[in-house]
Design a protein around this nucleic acid. Sequence first.
RNA 1: GCGAGAGUGGCGGAACUGGCAGACGCGCUGGACUUAGGAUCCAGUGGGCAACCGUGGGGGUUCAACUCCCCCCUCUCGCACCA
Length: 869
Amino acid sequence: MHGRYEPQEIELKWQEFWKRKNIFKSRKDTKRKKFYCLEMFPYPSGKIHMGHVRNYAIGDVIARYLRMRGYNVLHPMGWDAFGLPAENAAIKHGVHPARWTYENIAYMKAQLDRLGLSYDWQREITTCQPEYYKWNQWLFLKMLERGLAYRKASFINWCPSCETVLANEQVIDGRCWRCDSSVTQKELEQWFLKITAYAEELLRDLDTLKGWPEKVITMQKNWIGRSEGAEVIFKIDGTDEEILIFTTRPDTLWGCTFVCLAPNHPLADKLVRDKDVLKEMKGFYGDPLIKLGHFTGYYAINPVNRKKVPIYIANFVLMEYGTGAIMSVPAHDQRDFDFAKKYNLPIEVVIVPERDVMSERPDRAYEDEGYLINSDKFSGLHSIEAREKIIKFLEENGFGKRKINYKLRDWGISRQRYWGTPIPIIYCDKCGIVPVPEKELPVILPEDVRFTGKGGSPLLESHEFLITSCPRCGGRARRETDTMDTFVDSSWYFLAYCLKEEGADLTLEQSSSLEPHQYPRKSDDFLVTPISYWMPVNQYIGGVEHAVLHLLYSRFFTRVLRDLGIVNFSEPFTNLLTQGMVCMESLKCPEHDWLFPSEVKDDKCIHCGRPVEHGRVEKMSKSKKNIVDPDDMIKRYGADTIRVFSLFAAPPEKDLEWSASGVEGIYRFLNRLWNFVQALSSEIRDQNTETSGASRSPSSNLSIVRLTHRTIKRVTEDIEKEFHFNTAIARMMEFLNELQGYVSQKTKGYSEEERAALRFAIESFLLMIGPFAPHIAEELWSQLGNKPSILEYPWPEWNEELARELEYELVIQINGKIKAKIMIPDGLSDDEIKERSLAEPKIKEAISGKNIKNIIVARKRLVNIVLGN
RNA sequence: GCGAGAGUGGCGGAACUGGCAGACGCGCUGGACUUAGGAUCCAGUGGGCAACCGUGGGGGUUCAACUCCCCCCUCUCGCACCA
């Protein structure tokens, strides 16, 4: 009698087994090829959601598959544990952020284990621990030494609700990325990291990232925003002042009819008499498309033609980009054109689409390339050529110089918050800004503080923390109370996993690839440090939402570490997979608003019986209640079903639509597999456990042997081809369908040869499904009399000859229309194929009396007979 | 506006280098087993009675187009006064 498929039972059993055998432990081994498979570590928010499940299921299949392919795989997991929600919980519920965080970690870790994810937990990292954030502080000091960290007062993005500063990357449409409140500007002293020092390199090297999605590369390129042009000096008529402007179109200099300054440009205060107007413009945050200007009464002198042009203050000019001042060429820039029309300023055409053609009065700006007119000796040149020559002309005459600008700004990392890495700085009245000496690291975040939610960081009230002595003069001094942006933590965490190498308690400092002096000489590969062995990450997997933030910062940090001699590479992630979102239809009751899927039965609201409205399919969200809880799903179907479903419903890079009946379908599939193996296990069970687990291919030519080889080939190719797990799983479903068909047609008993063939088919099946549904694979593997663990067996191999189909269906077309299909043996020559096609009765009939113009043979596919008229 | 990607049955999605459109799953229809079926198994399932017609729309290249080229439409995502 065979038992039912009970996922709860077998999954817990094998999870326990894997844990006991410590089967996912990874160790550096220079004799083996390594593979570092990494998923973006989660913020311990409380519980995992389906997005996590999908992300980690993808990573787990890759890790498990590559282990089977013989790689030494590093597959770690950790916690991005600092951050605002912990502090908010403290304010709201009175729980200490540390306690809240650690409790969440414990719960979520159990959830991940329940999914059967193959992590090496011995390498777990938690960023809120001093042993981790010590290295944030150390790196900060190293950057400070090199001028890569600095302090400046600046207008910053301020979220009034979170009472903190936001990085540019954290402002979305003028709103806080986290709480969605409107962001305001505020001037504060901040610590910055000089990512702009690497702007050029970060941009250039994007082209080397062949394993990254084009989309992410483009987003980073746009973010860095390089533009080439010139800075030009305009003297202000009747004063000693000058205005420095930036332009990407020096070829249009002769068409400049006015100059604009940003409202917060330093010169604006000097030039504008009416301070109220200026104040109003500075505070203007209305529709940016409405052009506002104010004439200063002053004129600037265009250096190239000595022409006097009016100076305006304009709301559309940004102080943060370029020089905060522009030359306006209304004929060739639409914004300038709109402005000129509004304030009745002259428009002078200096570029025309075709040589020597005079232009008519334009009704819009001509922004394309063309030929110069009215530009002195440069007239007649093509604009691209003119740009170069004019820049030279500017430089020779001291009018200006070549200049490259970037949109990328330095990264403000100060946060007026408690739950983060303390910035290791001391302020002394006598000595000024003094870095905490390295040997005093880490600066520990004090735990006994109060959370009121008012007036900034609780650290300000912690006198023990705040008041210290100056490392230089010993006098009374004050600590920096700002903490670091949590994106600092995640900018190098992938290295921290490497450092947790067994038997080598390493630090970042010691891990320098150039001087492996501290690394224990236990083996002959001691010269290879864990970082240089494991890095770079071969496959990184996570959401696109980190396309610029985290992924750009990580690339920046890696370069800093490279220049410090700690790592010997520039790019941390060789291949990047940005998985799609998990979506679901939202459901709405006219009476009860949004409904959870569990509140709907037969398309009706369970509370009032009204028919539900079906909303859009969009990202799962609590507010629209279109969510499913991984815990519920696991309880109902087990981890294997959830894993397989989230890999089957869509290819990894696309959005996945959650479907309750789709999940059922996968559960049925696993049940069918279970029952199939159960029914056959007495036939094919290997009594001799010593020699079991071979899964060697029988040399026989039986159809199921061939089918097995063919399936192995196709599944392997699907996985290798951009991880198309959805089709790989479809192949396995087909495989099961065909095996069932084979078995159900069987009336007599099995021959020895057939038994061997079936055993081979099933074992190959289990090995292939293993990375996807590891528990059922392990259980059935052992039920066949094999010694666990299935994880110790390699990925099955196929034989090209046995994977070949002996005969195939040939499609016969006449003039491109299908007329017949015949089975023919593989390996026929083109002539033989033609002959057989023409001999087919239906074809014979169709072509009788007609003139055959041509016959095209597409091997293994079709024949197309082209008839003349 | 700029940049990127995508439009295929009732639904999610397949389709190699141009070579049978719709694999696989869901749903649906019919049947078997059953006291019962929301379990399981079997069969069918793009449209059309047919010739034929079908991959957002229109043109083109080709013996052959979901696939290549041109024009247009729609949707999604990212950036958005960056001079």
